[in-house]
């Protein structure tokens, strides 16, 4: 099953990264072979995060002022990166369909507004969303399903696999899985790793895999860096900050550390992994701060919906109101955007 494809020596944060063996496992590249020793050896080599430095760097980037034409570009860019999300126990088919309509035409009065990046729902609403998107001209908009006993991740592997299969069979082309934070925090890295590998195996070529780290429960930035690399080594296509169910969610330092992780991963492997902050991003200002972080940390290549998404629901209305303000010159009101 494992094919050795080469040995590399790279540097990371200026420190020499000792030679690692790369394996090709099915169709994706792995840095570790899944044993506890290999995972620990791999994660041990990650340098610690300078928390004070990360916080001040993130705060410094947040002071950038983005105005006029750049702001217009940033708003449209942010709209196209939104994973328009509804994850409530009270979700109905009607609500999901309304959300899909909004995803295709965020502002019905202005056809120049781009469609959003994806729709994100629970797995039992995937079929509804897919069908409605196809009928209203949203064929190109993917449907993402949260999976593996979202949001807690407290279920057996069998249940998690079935959860994912259901979503895939209903037409999901993106899977947002949660990691087992309890296992991660108690040091059972193999469990976290193998779960991701199994889910990735199910997704194969059918779907993109986003791995939710739930950084609010990981406590330290060091853990965020370790979990990011662990997820990427196990085959994640995207690493995602949070479920949106607990606070704090996508804070700037956390996103900064995750963006550094994908940047370093690219330097090591030549593979670009995506990042998706989710939770707590409600205003245009917040969204633009995220874009600045991306541009200054991972680089311009990440400023595309293929590699950067924002998980949000209320954010879209604020972006639309700011867009109206730029278009008409007047401050817009919430009466002129749809209620979700």
């Amino acid at each position: 099953m494992l094919t050795k494809i080469g040995t590399f020596t790279r540097t990371m944060h200026g420190n020499p990264f000792s030679p690692l063996t790369f394996f090709r496992y099915n169709s994706y590249v792995q840095l570790v072979d899944g044993t506890d020793t290999s995972i620990r050896r791999f994660l041990k080599q990650l340098p610690g995060v300078d928390q004070v430095g990360a916080e001040s760097r993130a705060a410094m980037l947040a002071t950038r002022s983005i105005k006029t034409t750049s702001k217009k570009w940033a708003i449209d860019c942010a709209i196209s990166m939104i994973d328009l999300t509804t994850l409530e126990g009270s979700d109905t088919d009607g609500k999901v369909r309304a959300l899909c309509t909004k995803a295709v035409h965020p502002d019905p009065t202005d056809p120049s507004v781009p469609s959003v990046g994806a729709i994100c729902v629970y797995n039992d609403k995937v079929a509804t969303a897919r069908k409605h998107l196809d009928t209203i001209g949203g064929k190109s908009i993917p449907v993402a399903a949260v999976s593996t006993a979202f949001p807690s991740g407290r279920a057996s592997l069998e249940v998690k696999k079935q959860d994912t299969l259901d979503a895939l069979n209903n037409g999901a082309t993106e899977i947002d899985m949660v990691i087992d934070r309890g296992a991660f925090l108690s040091g059972d890295l193999v469990k976290v790793f193998t779960e991701i590998v199994y889910i990735k195996e199910l997704c194969a070529d059918r779907a993109h895999l986003k791995v939710i780290l739930e950084t609010g429960e990981l406590v330290t930035l060091d853990n965020v860096r370790r979990a990011s690399h662990l997820a990427m080594a196990a085959g994640a296509d995207f690493i995602k900050t949070s479920t949106g169910k607990i606070s704090p969610a996508a804070t700037a330092p956390v996103v900064l550390v995750m963006l550094e992780a994908v940047r370093d991963w690219y330097a090591m492997t030549g593979i670009r992994i995506g990042v998706k902050p989710a939770g707590g991003i409600r205003t245009t200002k917040d969204a633009i701060k995220q874009l600045v972080l991306v541009r200054e940390t991972a680089g311009e290549e990440w400023l595309t919906p293929k590699l950067f998404r924002i998980g949000a629901s209320a954010l879209l209305n604020d972006l639309l109101m700011q867009r109206m303000k730029l278009r008409n010159g007047n401050y817009a009101g919430p009466n002129y955007v749809t209620l979700d």
Binding site: Y331, A332, G333
Partner: peptide, 9 residues
């Protein structure tokens, strides 16, 4: 003028 044009007033 900004008060007059504000759509939420």
């Amino acid at each position: 003028p900004w008060m007059g044009a504000h759509m939420d007033v």
